[in-house]
Design a protein around this nucleic acid. Structure first.
Lengths: 156, 156
DNA sequence: TATTGTTATACTCTATAACTATA
DNA sequence: TATAGTTATAGAGTATAACAATA
């Protein structure tokens, strides 16, 4: 017991992480929170959020895609897609049309405004990632993307 | 058309990620979600969650630490610490005492049951990480921890 | 005056079940 | 019967402001 001599409330910046130290899950959670917070700062005032940029990006890369496909691509539940899509349609960023092949489904396309909003967001996001990953070489960033992708792939 | 016989995830892979493809934030978010979901599966039935294991670990590694210090170590707001700590105390995993040095503060110690619960959770968690990271060499895991830690450090 | 912990509150994200309209 | 989208709801996680007790 002799090793913990400091009083609670001392200038103890040296809080030990203990078992958390080498847990990938813990560090992933913390790093993801840091990225998310900086992302929010980067796009603040634009009405964008991580999930909305995700949806706009998927629609941009797959014009005419329907709601269910977008949700599956991003792992968003059907029920939770509804209000997200409503936000984008109400903001005039996305047009929603009944699918010609399946009248149960909606297909999406970006409006000009949606395209502009996404492009602006992407400029801010690339800047934010540059800031956050500034200390990493291109090699290290590629390695990070590769390692993260391999973990993602375990989620099937 | 009778062509819809593929399992979920088969042909949906043809959906392009577009701008998301090379965004670290996107892949971090997805990988973190995969880890979190598998974590939940690993400890299901034990009453543990990522945040509770975090608090127990910090207390275990820093006996006598107070509530504010735990919150700062894990980046949990003061207001949100209250119910989390109540959960742990009510479950008999942690004892809460008024600090001898500062009567505004509470100091925490793990009970025997808290120690056992944490140890059991850690066995499950190490197993879960082994499963999730099974394809990575020790070198790769170390690299991942290093890269994540460097991003974490940008959050100060 | 500042800090520790508390209460109240609110918003986002996530998850599930039940419903409708099409297929 | 199965699927696309909807509604309702509930539990986590997170954030802020105001308060009492103590420093």
């Amino acid at each position: 017991m002799g090793q913990n001599m400091m009083a609670a409330g001392d200038n103890d910046d040296a809080i030990r992480l203990g078992p958390l130290e080498d847990l990938v899950g813990y560090h992933m959670r913390r790093a993801s929170a840091v990225v998310g917070a900086d992302f929010a700062r980067a796009v603040s005032g634009t009405g964008m959020r991580q999930v909305l940029v995700g949806i706009l990006s998927i629609i941009a890369a797959n014009p005419g895609i329907n709601q269910g496909m977008v949700g599956r691509a991003l792992n968003i539940q059907r029920a939770n897609m509804v209000s997200l899509v409503n936000e984008l349609v109400d903001a005039g960023l996305v047009t929603r049309e009944v699918s010609a092949e399946d009248r149960r489904a909606f297909t999406f396309t970006l409006t000009d405004r949606g395209r502009t909003t996404l492009d602006d967001a992407l400029v801010r996001i690339r800047d934010h990632e540059e800031r956050l990953l500034g200390s990493m070489s291109a090699q290290e960033r590629a390695t990070l993307l590769d390692l993260l992708s391999r973990i993602e792939a375990r989620g099937d």
